[in-house]
Nucleic acid binder design. Sequence first.
DNA 1: GAGCCGTGGTC
DNA 2: TGACCAAGGCT
Length: 290
Amino acid sequence: MPTSDLHDPILDWYDEHQRDLPWRRPEASPWSVLVSELMLQQTPVVRVLPVHEAWLERWPTPADLAAEPTGEAVRAWGRLGYPRRALRLHAAATAIVAEHDGEVPSDYDDLLALPGVGDYTAAAVASFAFGRRHVVLDTNVRRVLARVVGGAELPGRSLTRAERDAAAALVPDDAATAATWAVAVMELGALVCTAAGPRCEACPVAERCAWHLAGHPAYDGPPRRAQAWDGTDRQCRGRLMAVLRENHAPVHRSALDATWPDEAQRTRCLAGLVADRLVAQVAPDVYALP
DNA sequence: GAGCCGTGGTC
DNA sequence: TGACCAAGGCT
C-alpha cells in the first residue's frame, strides 16, 4: 500500500478536528512545549491544562524556574503524579541556562541530553516547537500504526526496530508537513483510535485500516500485567508527598506517621524520597520539600 | 529488558 | 466494582 495514501486523510482530519491546546498555539514558546511534554508523560491532557497554565505564568522562561528551589517545582507540580518529573524539569531548566544561554535547544541530541527528556520527548519538542522532521513515536502513534499498518489491536510491549522503521517510512519528506503529521497521528490516537472503544466510524482511514478490515481481531500478544496499587511503595510515597506539599512549613515525623500504618514501609519510603531528593530532612525528625 | 515511579478517570 | 489506562524515562 502506498503509504502516502494515509497522509491527506489524516492531515485533513487533523485540520478539522484538532483540539485548541495552549502549547499548540502559534505564540507558544519552546519552553511551553517542553513543559507540556514533561507534564503529559503518562498524564491526561485535562489534568495537565491548569497546572501548565499556572506554571508558565509563574515561570515564563527556563531561567525563572532555575532560579527557584527544586521544592517549589515539586509543590507546583501538584497532583500530576510522578513528581520526579518536576525535579527533572527543574534540572532541565538549569541545564538550559547553563549550557544553552537560557534558550530551549532545537537540536534533537541537545534535547535528548536534558534530564527527563528521552527519545519521544526530544523528537516531540524538536518537531512541535521547531518544525524539525523526526519520528515521533508515543503510545498513541504506536497504537494507530499497529492497527492501520499492522492489523493488530495493540502494539507489543516493547518498541521493535521493525516498528520504528515502519513509522519512519511514513514520515513525510517535507519538515513542516512531517511536524504536522506527527501531531496529527497522535491526535487521531487520542481522540478516535483510542485503546478502549475506538470510534472507527469517525476515522478518516478506517477503510484503509488493516485491523478494521480484518474485523477487529482481539489482542493476542503477551499479557500486559496491570499495575498493582494498594499497599505499594508508590501509594505510600504519594501519601507522604501529599502531606509535604500541603504544608508550607517543615513537618514533624509524627505528621507523616499518621498517613501510613506500616511503620517499616513508611520509614523505607521516606528514606527513598530523601534519597531521590524529593524530600529534605531539615532537622532530626523534621522534613520539608527541598 | 523488566521493574519502578503517582494520580485519577473511565467503561 | 475494579481492571485498565494516560503525549515516558531511568536504572
